[in-house]
Amino acid sequence: MSVTIMPEAGGAHATLRRNFWRGVWRVMKRKPSRLVGVVIMAGFAFMGIAGPLLYPAQLPRDTDALYAPPSWQHPFGTDFEGTDVVALVVTGSQYVLLTAVITAVITVVLGTGIGLFSGFKRGRWDTVLMRVTDMKLTIPGLPLLLVLSTVWKFSAAFEMGLVLGLLGWGGVARAVRAQTLSLRERGFIEAARGLGLSTTHIVGRELLPSMAPYIAMNALIAVTGAVYAQVGLFFLGVLPFEASNWGVMLNTAVFGGGALTTTAALPYLMAPLLAILLLTLGIVLVVDAMDEIFNPRLREE
C-alpha cells in the first residue's frame, strides 16, 4: 500500500518544490535589488575560496610607491610597504569569511539545539538554560572578548570562529525556543504526537523543516556579526596578526598610516571599509528577500 502512495507523495513534493522556486523567482523579479544581493554574496564566496589563488603567496611590493594614490594599476593605492590594496582585500577575505562561516555554524548548531531542547522539554531544564542564555545575552560581548584576549591569543581562524560562536548562540537559542513553543501547540505537531511518532521524528521531520528558513536567516545574520567582531578585534590591535585580513588592514591604516588625520592613507582605509559595507549590503538584501519568500504575510500581491 505504501508503494502506491509513495509516488503520489513524491509528485506532490515535486510540484511544491517547483512552486517554491517560482515564488523565489517572483520575489526576485519584483525587486531586482535582491538579485544584486545574491550576486554580491556569490562574489564574496568566490573571493574567499579562490581569492588567494589569484595572487602569488608573497604579494609583490612596489617599494617606490608607498601609500601611492589610486591609479589604474592600483585602484585603491598601495599600503605602507607598497603592496596593492585590492590584492590585500582579496587575499584577506579568506580569513575573514572562513572565520565567519565557522562562527555561523557553531552559533546555529548550538542555538538551535539548545532552543529546541529547551522549548520542547520545558520544565526545569528550560528554566536553567534560559537563565544561562539571558545572562550570556546581557554580559557585554566585546569587553569580554578584549579581557579574554589577555590570556588567550585566539587569532587562528578556527579559534576565532570557536570563540565568537561560543559567545554568540544566545540570541538564536531564544528565538528558536520561542518558535518551538508556539509550533508545538499547533495541530500538525499534536497530530504527529497522537500518531505515536517518535520525538526524533517530530523534532527532525516536523519541527525543524518549518523553522529552517528562519534558522538560515539567523545564520546569515551570524555571518555579519562574526565579520564585524573579528575585524573589530584586529582593528583594536589586541590580538597578534595571524594572516592578512581586513581588520589588520584597518589597524595599520589608522594607527600606522594615520589615515584619520592625513589623506595619503585614506584609500588604504577605505578599501576594507567598502568591502565590509558591500558584504553587509549583500546580506541585508538576501535576508530581506528570504523574509518575503518564507513569510507569505509580507508578500505584496
Binding site: 589615515a259 571599509l273 559595507l277 541585508v284
Partner: peptide, 17 residues
C-alpha cells in the same frame, strides 16, 4: 547593519580629514 566602527571611521575621515 553597519558596525559602529565603520560609521565612526567614515565620519572621522569625512569631518576631520
Amino acid at each position: 547593519g553597519v558596525p559602529q566602527y565603520v560609521l565612526a571611521m567614515l565620519l572621522a575621515a569625512i569631518f576631520t580629514t
